[in-house]
Simulated scan of single mutants.
Amino acid sequence: MNTREVIDKYYESANAGDWDTWLTLFDDNVVVDEQLAGHIEGIEIMRGAIGGIERGYSKFQNNPQHVVIDGNEASVVSHISAANATGVPIEANVANYFRLENGKISYMANFHDTRPFDPFVNQRLN
């Protein structure tokens, strides 16, 4: 897949809750700087985070508003419309940066105001 196809599949699979497909888009040695989770290294850490995403959100949609592709790099401005496990709404604008190597995401960073995610971060999950 080319860069645009990987980026499109990233949002498509995340919005469908298809985390198995989503994980295939990342290099095994991926590095992620995630606004809420911090610095992450390796696909196994990403795989482990899926459970928290599935338990922590009752709804999650990340809709791209503006996509810029330049070779093996992409920047995406998007809007997240989500809800925590008990349905408390979360609305946030986000910017993601991606770098790909050999058709896989090797580095990703996201940037957003963390306050809208308080209902996710501060909830108690069993």
Rank of each mutant, 00 (worst) to 15 (best):
55 R>F: 08
90 I>Q: 12
57 Y>V: 06
87 G>F: 02
45 I>N: 10
15 N>I: 03
34 E>V: 03
89 P>E: 11
110 N>M: 02
105 I>A: 01
120 F>R: 09
31 V>W: 00
41 E>G: 03
102 N>K: 07
114 T>F: 11
57 Y>E: 02
98 F>M: 02
51 G>E: 09
63 N>A: 05
92 A>D: 10
21 T>E: 09
31 V>A: 09
37 A>E: 07
4 R>G: 06
20 D>A: 15
65 Q>N: 13
24 T>S: 08
95 A>Y: 05
103 G>C: 03
77 V>Y: 04
82 A>H: 00
93 N>L: 11
39 H>F: 07
80 I>E: 02
49 A>M: 13
3 T>G: 03
121 V>R: 10
98 F>K: 14
55 R>T: 05
33 D>P: 02
83 A>Q: 07
30 V>A: 07
70 D>Y: 08
60 F>W: 12
106 S>R: 13
40 I>T: 09
84 N>K: 05
92 A>C: 04
56 G>K: 10
32 V>S: 04
76 V>E: 02
99 R>T: 14
33 D>H: 11
38 G>W: 15
120 F>W: 14
46 M>C: 06
92 A>I: 05
107 Y>M: 05
31 V>N: 09
115 R>P: 01
78 S>D: 08
55 R>Q: 12
70 D>N: 11
91 E>G: 08
4 R>P: 00
124 R>C: 02
71 G>S: 00
115 R>M: 13
19 W>A: 05
84 N>M: 08
19 W>R: 09
52 G>D: 09
119 P>W: 05
50 I>A: 02
90 I>M: 05
26 F>M: 11
46 M>D: 07
72 N>Y: 00
33 D>C: 07
60 F>Q: 04
70 D>I: 05
44 E>V: 06
113 D>F: 08
103 G>K: 12
34 E>N: 15
11 Y>R: 08
61 Q>V: 03
25 L>W: 12
7 I>A: 05
4 R>W: 02
98 F>N: 06
117 F>K: 01
94 V>L: 11
39 H>E: 04
3 T>N: 10
125 L>P: 01
114 T>N: 07
80 I>C: 13
112 H>N: 07
53 I>G: 03
119 P>S: 01
105 I>Y: 01
35 Q>S: 15
86 T>E: 15
8 D>Y: 03
8 D>R: 01
52 G>Y: 06
108 M>K: 12
78 S>C: 01
121 V>M: 11
111 F>R: 02
54 E>P: 08
9 K>E: 14
60 F>L: 15
107 Y>I: 04
49 A>G: 15
110 N>S: 06
11 Y>T: 07
75 S>Q: 14
76 V>W: 04
25 L>N: 03
102 N>M: 02
29 N>E: 15
95 A>N: 09
101 E>A: 09
107 Y>W: 13
48 G>T: 12
37 A>M: 15
